[in-house]
Design a protein around this nucleic acid. Structure first.
Length: 597
RNA sequence: UGUCCCAUAGUGUAAUUGGUAACAUGUCAGAUUCUGGCUCUGAAGAGUUUAGGUUCGAGCCCUAAUGGGACAGCCA
């Protein structure tokens, strides 16, 4: 055995050793990495990891790393959140830190425990576990005290103007705002009103607490931002205890500070909030510690929308069948569609984290699921649009059990049996009376292999009065059974089938992209409902699947051979099997067929 | 003549300032195949938005322009 080191790599913090094993025919090159951190070192760091490593190298926060995933419980998580989750939990894990789940529940009107539960379920399904669960509402007391402190310092005041008035005075991005007439209200009066505001003495909208900063600031967020408003709607956790609630800008950074977050990762649209985030923390902090907000690009995917508002609208207006409709980009939608956590991780790993706000081709996502399911999904036979095939020279009443390999990619998955008989179903698509040259399937005079069974030669078909194909006929060659010595004869095509008598009925749901246009969010002047793809769901009943599938459990993955990856829908019952198409197989034939006209 | 952010093949990401700008996906071709899948081989596809500057040397640093985005909720 020879071991050689590559000197040229010595500047990196890992070393590669090529070990050449002296096997005669197949010298195996095995790369062994002698470090504790295997994969990570090979890959270049993203800009956030670079920052984290720099902070670590400088000894910031005594080498402590803490992140948080901070959803508002006002909707279901989508694949964009998955990207944030992978980052928040991933950074903590990679650098030996912790990641907490914190619900940013500062607006009781929009929030609900239903969402809290689904969020936790989705994070865990993705394979992550938080260190602690926190709620911004846990800090309402501390935040209140901080607000009082600001008032006492003369840095906050109660404004009694209407929201319209305040908006008007705010100015525009290019014009400075003007100061509120209430801006210099005495401290005592502010404290008194703030107290009463929370006791329910005033109506919603009648007054707010504002930070006194700079109405002429070029950053709109500094123009005396509202930090407390009156909401009388009960809170899903604190009930009616509070009537005055902190705004996001006032709650978020402070919550990070209370918890000891070191790196507060969020999406790009919060970039302009960062100076304010820092401003509040500067007012609050009593030591050198300060959490650091870093923004990365949010995930945009082609042919779908990612905004919670629009997703909610799709659900509320019944344009889809709920949050977990398999066409939705929600995590529960992907789960029901048949995506695996591994495929989502793979996808997110490939797209990376930058500050460039682009849109990602769903083809990348689809590739990730195909790759994952190709490795793990058992192969089965299913006929979605059946037509009868009769093997005219096969004995009536005879049945043979054929061996079907579960997964050619993974021998350890073994095999199962599938019943073969005289009468079968094949796909309507797999028979053509007049076929083009490159059609390798069932057509009179042509031989095809029936997967896992015999080579058959098509002899003709029977049509009804309307010209529709009712039955297809073929003769089999008994010497060509799969596995037999003479079975290796070359035939161009192989098609799948199920036995009429032994197969079971099923419903199959074929999903396609939800929207017709690549970037629905970009078409600002169009109603996004007009861009919906009318064919995004096709329900096909009367499908026939092999008996093996009676054993399927909800969400089990399968490859329907030659068709795609499918999973059993949770609504499926013993008497009514329902399969969802996760993604089709790549289909080069359809391209050829198209080009041939 | 607001502040902030961004700009590398179709898409996404990479490239201690120094070798012919790399990878994935997508596209096209071919091989293989009892899945028109997978796998394998190959090809096309950017000369790094533009113009200056610094440098022996710039995708990378500086300046400006151009284009795109975020910010004017009592949402987060």
């Amino acid at each position: 055995m020879k071991v050689c080191t590559r000197k040229s790599f010595s500047t990196f913090h890992f070393q590669l050793y090529y070990v050449i094993l002296p096997f005669k025919n197949k010298p195996d090159f095995i790369m062994i990495e002698l470090t504790n951190n295997t994969d990570e070192n090979k890959k270049s760091l993203n800009f956030i990891e670079t920052i984290v490593e720099k902070d670590l190298a400088e000894g910031k926060n005594n080498g402590r790393i803490q992140t948080r995933f901070p959803p508002e419980p006002n909707g279901y998580l989508h694949i964009g959140h998955a990207k944030a989750i992978c980052l928040d939990f991933g950074i903590a894990k990679k650098y030996g830190g912790i990641c907490n789940l914190r619900f940013d529940d500062t607006n009781p009107v929009k929030e609900d425990v239903e969402y809290v539960d689904s969020i936790m379920e989705d994070i865990q399904w993705l394979g992550f576990q938080w260190e602690n669960v926190f709620y911004a509402s846990d800090y309402f007391g501390q935040l209140w005290d901080f607000a009082v402190q600001l008032i006492k310092k003369g840095k906050a005041y109660i404004d009694e103007q209407s929201s319209e008035e305040i908006a008007k005075q705010k100015g525009t991005p290019t014009q400075p705002g003007i100061e509120s007439p209430f801006r210099n209200r005495p401290v005592e009066e502010n404290l008194d009103l703030f107290q009463k505001m929370n006791e329910g003495a005033f109506e919603e909208g009648s007054m707010v607490l504002r930070a006194k900063i700079d109405m002429a600031s070029p950053n709109m967020h500094f123009r005396d931002p509202i930090i407390y408003r009156i909401i009388k709607h009960p809170h899903h956790r604190t009930g009616t205890q509070w009537k005055a609630y902190p705004m996001y800008d006032f709650a978020h950074g402070e919550s990070d500070y209370f918890e000891g977050v070191t790196h507060s990762l969020c999406t790009l649209e919060f970039e302009v909030h960062r100076p304010l985030y820092d401003w509040f923390i500067d007012e609050l902090k009593t030591d050198d510690y300060r959490p650091r907000q870093i923004e990365f690009n949010r995930l945009n995917l082609t042919y779908t929308v990612m905004s919670k508002r629009k997703l909610l609208q799709l659900v509320k207006e019944g344009l889809v069948n709920g949050w977990d409709d398999p066409r939705m980009p929600t995590i529960c939608g992907f789960r029901r569609r048949g995506y695996t956590p591994a495929s989502i991780h793979k996808f997110i790993d490939k797209i990376g984290y930058t500050k460039y706000d682009g849109i990602i081709d769903v083809a990348l996502l689809e590739h990730a699921v195909r790759e994952n399911l190709n490795a793990k999904a058992p192969r089965v036979s299913a006929v979605i649009n059946p037509v009868k095939l009769i093997i005219t020279n096969y004995p009536e009443g005879q049945t043979e059990m054929m061996e079907a390999i579960n997964n050619p990619e993974d021998e350890s998955m073994g095999s199962h049996e599938i019943a073969f008989s005289r009468e079968l179903y094949i796909e309507q698509e797999d028979f053509m009376e007049d076929a083009p040259k490159k059609y390798f399937r069932m057509t009179p005079g042509q031989e095809v292999r029936l997967k896992n069974a015999y080579i058959v030669k098509c002899t003709g078909c029977k049509k009804n009065a309307g010209g529709e194909i009712e039955e297809v006929y073929a003769e089999y060659d008994p010497n060509t059974k799969s596995g037999m010595p003479e079975s290796n004869r070359k035939v161009k095509g192989t098609i799948h089938w199920v036995s009429v008598e032994h197969s079971i009925p099923a419903e199959v749901r074929l999903y396609d992209r939800l929207f017709d246009c690549e970037n629905p969010s970009e078409e600002k002047d169009k109603d996004f409902r007009e861009m919906l793809n009318p064919d995004s769901l096709k329900i096909v009943s009367g499908c026939r699947v092999e008996a093996e599938l009676a054993k399927a459990k909800p969400l089990d993955h399968f490859q329907f051979q030659r068709l795609g990856y499918f999973n059993l829908d949770p609504d499926s019952t013993k008497d009514h099997l329902i399969f969802n198409r996760t993604v089709s197989l790549k289909d080069t034939w359809s391209k050829i067929a198209k080009n041939e006209g």
